[in-house]
């Protein structure tokens, strides 16, 4: 697992899964599994912006970019490459 994924995984587990990491796979949908709700999405964005020093644009806030560890990894790799 690369660094980006590890960092996000740790954040999700600490903040939304309360330490229980059993069911968190790379393709687990945060929204559909109820791990993150609509306020949680906002907190996730806050975390990404501070942690990776990026700005997440409004049109980037879509499930395709944010709704699993794999999607986040792809999204962040793309943003950081810019």
């Amino acid at each position: 697992m690369n660094e980006i994924k590890k960092t996000i995984r740790k954040f999700i587990i600490e903040n939304f899964l309360f330490g229980e990491e059993d069911n968190l796979k790379g393709d687990t949908s945060f929204l559909e599994e109820g791990i993150i709700d609509s306020t949680g999405v906002l907190e996730l964005i806050e975390f990404l912006e501070e942690q990776f020093d990026i700005t997440v644009k409004d049109d980037e806030i879509i499930p395709e970019n944010l709704d699993s560890l794999n999607n986040l990894e792809k999204f962040l790799t793309r943003v950081e490459a810019k």
Partner: peptide, 9 residues
Amino acid sequence: QLIQTNQKV
């Protein structure tokens, strides 16, 4: 898309 997913849940 995001609203639709949230609403479905």
